[in-house]
Nucleic acid binder design. Structure first.
Length: 284
DNA sequence: GAAATAATTGTT
DNA sequence: AACAATTATTTC
C-alpha cells in the first residue's frame, strides 16, 4: 500500500504538490482500495496497534475516509438498506492529533473536542463557536447510555428525546475507531498514526473552551477486552535506531532487563512529568 | 455545487 | 523553525 502511494510520474513539468492525495485519487479510480464502503467497528485486517504512515493510508484502506477531517461519519445516505435500523449521521472513526487546544487525552479515557471553529493555521486556536452539526452531530448520535440493567446500550434519538425502540433502547452498540497521531522521525511525513481500538462515547456537552468560544466535547471510554494500549506510553523506534542512549528521548531506565539480556533494553517515558521510571522486577 | 475540514508540502 | 499555500473528498 505504501508502495502504491508513491508519487506518479506524470507530473514532469508540474510537481505534484501532494503526491499522497494524487495517489489516493488514482487508487480510487483503479478500484484499488480495500473498503470503499464505510463500516462500523473493526475492519478485518486492521488490528489494534496498526500503524499508518500518513492520513492518506487510512483513506485508501477505508479506515478513515478523510485525509483532513478528524471525524469520519456515515452520512444520511447510509440510512437505507443494510443500515436502515440506525440513526444517522453516525460517527465511525476519529483521529486525535492534538490540533485542538481543548482536547484531553488520558489514553483509556479521552475528552475529544468537536470539529469546527478552528482557525486552521496550526496554532491550535478556536476563533468561532462550534455548532452541533456534521461530525459533532455524528458523535453525539453515538452516545451510549447507562441503563438500569448495568449494560450500556446505544439509544436512538428522535429530536432531543432518547427513545427506546421497542422498549426504550436498542441492543446495538456503535463504537468509534480511535486513531492517534504521534511524532515519528522515520515516517516520511514526520508522524505516524496508530489504531488504538474501539471507544464508546459516554458523555457529551458544550462548554466555553480555552479561547472563550463554544466547543463540543465528547468523553470517550475505551471498550474492554481489547489489546492493551501501549502506543501512547511507549516510544517505539522503527527504522533508524538510536546510536547511543543519549539519543533516546525521555529515557528513564537504561536496561529494564537488569542485565539479563545481552542487549540492554532501554525504557522511555514521555507521558509523565517528571518522568517516572518503571517499577517492579522482571522475572527470568 | 458550495462549504467545511487541517495535513502535508513548499517557502522564508 | 515558523508560516503560508495547496489540497480533494465528503456532505447536504
Amino acid at each position: 500500500m505504501v508502495q502504491k502511494e508513491k508519487p506518479s510520474e506524470d507530473g514532469d513539468k508540474k510537481k505534484a504538490k501532494r503526491p499522497d492525495l494524487k495517489a489516493i485519487t488514482k487508487m480510487f479510480e483503479a478500484n484499488a482500495t480495500m473498503y470503499p464502503e464505510k463500516r462500523i467497528g473493526d475492519l478485518p485486517g486492521i488490528s489494534v496497534g496498526h500503524r499508518f504512515y500518513s492520513r492518506a493510508e487510512m483513506v485508501v484502506v477505508g479506515f478513515h475516509s478523510h485525509w483532513l477531517n478528524g471525524i469520519d461519519y456515515m452520512g444520511l445516505s447510509y440510512s437505507k438498506g443494510e443500515y436502515h435500523n440506525y440513526t444517522f449521521p453516525l460517527a465511525v472513526a476519529i483521529v486525535i492529533s492534538g490540533m485542538y487546544e481543548d482536547d484531553l487525552d488520558n489514553a483509556e479515557d479521552v475528552i475529544y473536542t468537536g470539529q469546527g471553529g478552528h482557525d486552521l493555521t496550526g496554532n491550535k486556536r478556536q476563533i468561532r463557536d462550534q455548532k452541533l452539526e456534521r461530525g459533532n452531530l455524528a458523535l453525539k448520535v453515538c452516545l451510549w447510555f447507562k441503563l438500569a440493567s448495568l449494560s450500556l446500550f446505544r439509544c436512538w434519538y428522535i429530536g432531543e428525546q432518547a427513545q427506546v425502540r421497542g422498549k426504550n433502547c436498542v441492543e446495538q452498540c456503535v463504537p468509534v475507531r480511535v486513531v492517534r497521531g504521534h511524532e515519528c522521525a522515520s515516517s516520511y511525513c514526520g508522524r505516524v498514526y496508530t489504531y488504538d481500538g474501539l471507544y464508546k462515547v459516554v458523555q457529551y456537552w458544550a462548554e466555553k473552551g480555552l479561547s472563550g468560544f463554544t466547543v463540543f466535547k465528547y468523553r470517550l471510554r475505551r471498550l474492554e477486552g481489547q489489546p492493551i494500549l501501549t502506543t501512547n506510553q511507549v516510544q517505539f523506534s522503527y527504522g533508524r535506531v538510536p546510536q547511543s542512549v543519549a539519543e533516546i528521548r525521555g529515557l528513564v531506565c537504561e536496561d529494564i532487563s537488569g542485565g539479563q539480556e545481552d542487549v540492554p533494553i532501554p525504557a522511555t517515558n514521555l507521558v509523565d512529568d517528571p518522568p517516572v521510571a518503571p517499577s517492579g522486577k522482571l522475572d527470568s
